[in-house]
């Protein structure tokens, strides 16, 4: 299958990357090139094959329920591009 300009537009919005109208055609071609290439996987018979979930075959570790972190306002806001007091700020969201 092959991506149209509209598909690219939609994906670009999903990924929140502004794609200027004039780039869409070129982008669609690039992406189609790569997608067309990876589609050779269709040749492989994967019936009764489990998808790989993790390369390490160990049990998931679990942490104890203790507060060991937080109270580091200075550290979590140190790099904020638009700090407002203790808050991060973004363009007003209407809901």
């Amino acid at each position: 299958m092959s991506l149209t300009k509209d598909d690219v537009q939609k994906i670009a919005f999903l990924a929140r990357i502004r794609a200027p109208e004039e780039r869409l055609e070129a982008l669609a071609q690039e992406l189609n090139g790569i997608i067309g290439w990876v589609e050779q996987l269709a040749e492989v018979n994967t019936d009764a094959v489990e998808p790989m979930t993790s390369v390490v075959d160990i049990a998931s570790p679990m942490r104890d329920d203790v507060v060991t972190d937080g109270a580091i306002l200075d550290k979590v806001t140190a790099n904020a591009p638009d700090p407002h007091g203790p808050f991060y700020a973004v363009p007003k969201v209407v809901e």
């Binding site: 919005f13 929140r16 990357i17 502004r18 979590v76 806001t77 904020a80 591009p81 991060y88 363009p91």
Partner: peptide
């Protein structure tokens, strides 16, 4: 939002799209 480059936008989505 929390670190790194930000390019301002009118809306949250615009800010995301322009920044990225």
């Amino acid at each position: 939002v929390r670190y790194g480059l930000r390019v301002e936008g009118e809306t949250l989505d615009e800010m995301y799209e322009l920044t990225r």
